[in-house]
Each structure stands twice: as C-alpha cells, then as structure tokens.
C-alpha cells in the first residue's frame, strides 16, 4: 500500500511538469503586456520597455521557462507583479480560506445529499422519491452565480440573517457554503440514489434478507458500503475542484480565496500568480485524487488486491492452492 502511494507521488512529478509547460505557454501567447498593465496607459513607451527588461519579459521563451522551473525547484514561484510579494506566500495566505470553504461545502453536500439519496432509493417511485429527485434537478440546474445573488437578496438584504459579503467570521461562510453546497447536495443525492438502486437489487442483499437481517441493517451494513464507491469518487472530484477556489462564488461574496486571487491575476496579466495558482491547484487536485484512490481500497477489498504488488501475490499463490486442495479433500 505504501509502495503504491509512493509510486503515485512519483507519478506526480511529470504531471506537474506538464502543467507548468502548458500554463506557461498559454500565458506566453495570451495578448496583453504585463508591464503596460502594471504601469498604466500613461506610462511612456521607454518606461514600459525598461520595465519589461527588468521583469525578464524580453528573453526567449525557453530561457524564461527554464528560469521559472529552476525557481520552482528552489521553492520560488516568482513574485507577484502587483503586490511585489512572493507568489508562494500569497497562495499560502489565501489557501486556508479556500480550504475551509471547500471543506464546508463538501461536508454540507455530503451530509445532506447522501442520506437523501439513500431514502429516495429505498422509497423508489414513492412521493418522497419524486420530491427529492425534482428538488435535486432544480438545484443542479441552477447556476451558482444566480443562486448566490438570490441568497444575498433573501437572507442578506431582506431577512438580514447573514452578512452579504466579506470574510470576517463563521457567519460569513454560511451563505456561500450553502450556495455551492446546494448544487453539491443535488449531484450527491442523484449519484447515491442510482448507485443504491443498483446495489439493493443485487443477490447479496437478498442473501442478507434471507438471513433474517433487519431492513435498516441491510441498508447501512450491506448496501451502503457497496454503493459508496462512485459517490466517493464524486465527492473527491468536487472537493478537488473546490480547492481550486469557487471562482464565481468567491467573486460574488467577496471572499479572499484562491478563486478571487486567480480571477484578479488573470485580469491584471499577473503571470507569476496565475502560474503559481494553477500549479498549486493541479497539485492539490492530484493529492485529493490520491486520497480518494487510497480510500477505495478500504471501501472495496477487491480493489485493494490491485494495489498489492505482483511479488506479494506470488507469495500468496501457493497458500491459495493448498487451501483449495484442502477444501477438495
């Protein structure tokens, strides 16, 4: 298992290398001059040209790319054009906010969505199921920027229950978390429902019934673990995406997270921040994926077998043969 994790971490290196090359190339060919953006339209051409030279923007592509790579290897993601702060520090400042938000959203969506999905699967084609699926469909189809604005209007402006924007305490997290969470609930519910429906028709559930097991234990003890796999995948993917910042939601609620940092940086052609941000998001997503993959092994023992190296399998084979022979005798 540890071997598998280490292997996956090594695979991370080429992935991240590709990410740097892609994002660097993309920013290289995007129109717009960072020096001009920073100095403003009033600055003279000479000043802009001198600034370009200072930033190293006039060097050839490969020179700039390798300079960037060497920087990364030394733990230096570059310096923000606008704030003059190291990008790594900027990300480190923003990341906790985004991480807390992503965690809140994921927990909220899962704690509500998964039980709803289970209930709706058990009560398939009953009123509860229809209600849950319809509400789920509505939330999944609602764009989060619209939902966010409506939340602000209703709970922030009209009812004044929660602050409308900013990030100064737990109460500020409620509206954005619910906004993104509602979409999460819906997709989590639909995934759980369909996965559950498949599982509760399977033979081993019938076996459990034939044992005289109670319906509650059949669902929680037998069906859920089997139905969880696709749900965990989805939760992991959603969490990974959210870790990159909920770009629109952070913008609407003015949350100083990674998403807001990225949108601002793109607008200002703040290349080092964009590059650093994308690299960090790629890294975080990969780690989350790795965690999800490791979780699989604990949910489904059949998958764990795939992680065990071939060498170990061979060592187990004679034992297997012996047992088989013993059973036949």
């Amino acid at each position: 298992m540890y071997k598998y994790i280490i292997k996956r971490l090594i695979y991370l290196i080429p992935v991240l290398l590709c990410v740097t090359l892609l994002i660097f190339t993309m920013l290289y060919i995007t129109p717009g001059d960072p020096a001009r953006m920073i100095l403003g339209n009033d600055a003279s051409d000479e000043a802009v040209e001198q600034y370009r030279e200072e930033l190293g923007l006039n060097d050839p592509f490969w020179t700039r790319y390798f300079r960037y790579l060497v920087g990364i290897l030394h733990g230096d993601l570059g310096t923000s054009y606008t704030t003059k702060m190291p990008v790594a520090k900027e990300i480190a400042e923003r990341f906790p906010t985004t991480f807390v938000m992503a965690l809140l959203v994921t927990i909220f969506g899962t704690l509500v969505g998964v039980p709803l999905g289970i209930i709706s699967a058990i009560k398939q084609n009953h009123a509860v199921d229809y209600l849950a699926t319809t509400v789920g469909l509505i939330f999944v189809s609602m764009p989060s920027f619209w939902l966010g604005l409506m939340m602000i209007v209703l709970f922030g402006v009209k009812l004044k229950w929660f602050p409308t924007s900013g990030w100064y305490g737990p109460q500020y997290a409620v509206l954005p978390a619910v906004t993104v969470g509602l979409t999460g609930i819906a997709s989590r519910m639909r995934m759980t429902r369909s996965s559950m429906l498949e599982v509760i028709r399977s033979d081993y559930i019938r076996t459990a019934r034939a044992k005289g097991q109670t319906e509650f234990k059949i669902i929680t003890g037998h069906a859920l673990q089997n139905a969880l796999l696709p749900v965990v995948t989805q939760i992991g993917m959603a969490f990974g995406t959210n870790m990159g910042g909920m770009i629109i939601t952070e913008q609407i609620f003015a949350i100083p997270g990674l998403g807001k940092m990225m949108t601002d940086a793109v607008n200002q052609r703040n290349h080092p921040v964009v590059q650093g941000g994308v690299l960090w998001i790629a890294f975080a997503t990969s780690i989350v994926n790795l965690i999800v993959d490791v979780l699989y092994a604990y949910i489904d023992p059949r998958l764990k077998a795939q992680y065990v190296s071939n060498k170990k399998k061979k060592a187990q084979a004679p034992k297997e043969a012996k047992a088989e022979g013993g059973a036949a005798a």
């Binding site: 081993y204 076996t207 044992k211 005289g212």
Partner: peptide
C-alpha cells in the same frame, strides 16, 4: 417473526455463489 424464521428455521442457499456473498465483508 418472519425475520426470526428466515435463517433461524428456514434458510436458503442461492443459485449463484458468485453474487450471493457481499463482496465487501
């Protein structure tokens, strides 16, 4: 009472052993 009878007094062996056992237990 049926739950006590299932497994307790009458038990069943199913057709397909490949799918009749819970894969995660």
């Amino acid at each position: 009472e049926m739950r006590a009878i299932r497994g307790g007094k009458i038990s069943m062996v199913f057709q397909d052993p490949m799918t009749a056992l819970n894969p995660v237990h």
